[in-house]
Design a protein around this nucleic acid. Sequence first.
DNA 1: TAACAACTTGACCGGGCGGTCCGTTTAGCC
DNA 2: GGCTAAACGGACCGCCCGGTCAAGTTGTTA
Lengths: 209, 209
Amino acid sequence: MATADRPLRADAARNRAALLAAAEAEFAERGLEASVAEIARRAGIGKGTVFRHFPTKDDLLAAVVLDRVDGLTALASRLSTADDPGAALLEFLDAAASRQQQLDLSFLREAGEVNDRLGASRARLFEQVVLLVDRAQAAGAIRSDVTGLDVILLMCAPNHVAGFVPGAPPGLWRRYLAIIFDGLRSPGSGPLPQPPPDPVGHPERFRSS
Amino acid sequence: MATADRPLRADAARNRAALLAAAEAEFAERGLEASVAEIARRAGIGKGTVFRHFPTKDDLLAAVVLDRVDGLTALASRLSTADDPGAALLEFLDAAASRQQQLDLSFLREAGEVNDRLGASRARLFEQVVLLVDRAQAAGAIRSDVTGLDVILLMCAPNHVAGFVPGAPPGLWRRYLAIIFDGLRSPGSGPLPQPPPDPVGHPERFRSS
DNA sequence: TAACAACTTGACCGGGCGGTCCGTTTAGCC
DNA sequence: GGCTAAACGGACCGCCCGGTCAAGTTGTTA
């Protein structure tokens, strides 16, 4: 990746931008199964050029996802000083679901295991979300027995659920976000039936480095 | 499919059972991407035999899913006369999540569009769930502004969410079912932000027949 | 403008997939 | 036991995928 090296030649930069846009669209439409050849066609470039910019399909995917993740991290960071922590968390979840039409957490999982930069980005996002959740809990806006990781995991559920209905209206996921968020607000009837997953966040990922 | 025709020869019946078991396990582990060759190997039979029993990989998948769906329908039907409608619905959702480790609704979607029998089975399940939801609502056990289809769509979310954590303890989905169910119990703060999806249940599927 | 390095390209490769086919095996019946 | 139809199995087919490469093109710099 020649991002920090010499500046790209003009045509290469143009192609790279077109490639990223095409990849984003194609991944959003077809998911992980989008083919490199189709992405190249959509970008109006040759398949070989794709692999010149990104040595692997996974790297291309990681680059696309990285943008989204960093954007969400920035938003979370901005919201972490908002007046109403509960509303801030809801707004974050709203933005997360809205921006990740189809580009859901499963991408983070599949691509994140391979790519180091994306893994680091994800870790930063997780930290920010944990902050948001902690503040919301301190303000009494959400129940005290859920963890930041719980919220992260639930983050993409609205999109996933709404994705099941074939001709879904564009904002249907909002309906399910509202229901799930009500579940996060509710004090709950009795303790949750299972302990939370390890809050360190998929720790075996960072152990070897 | 020679199910209703002459009885199968003894070895064929044996192979068919082994095939279904292997397919179920393999689909559960690898999802839609499980390969027919691998399923055959696991069942200890040749690949050709697989296609003798099920003309298509989709048909095999549909057969596996059909079992689950019919089982759930039977359970829902049994629960629809329970004393406590709220507890009955929760128990149903619990059983649904428990039985469909990984064999989630997306299978219903992908395979259901192709296979008519599975489509009919799914429709029957949906009817029963709607019944369960209606009773729970009449008893005041869950909020009145969600529909049966909402619940069906949310049904597989717990598994999906728990599936994100790599070394998940086996019952982690129960945690998220509890949170989501609390969202279904909560009266909610204000009306839901989006109207429910068409409750007829993916109607364009049955229109042409 | 000349010359070079950066860049592009599409034919090509190996591999895995769903699905087919036919020579071989075997269960069931007399 | 012998016969037949049913069932089996794995070599094989065509397809599409991610990834490579050598030959051609183009932006840049002096």
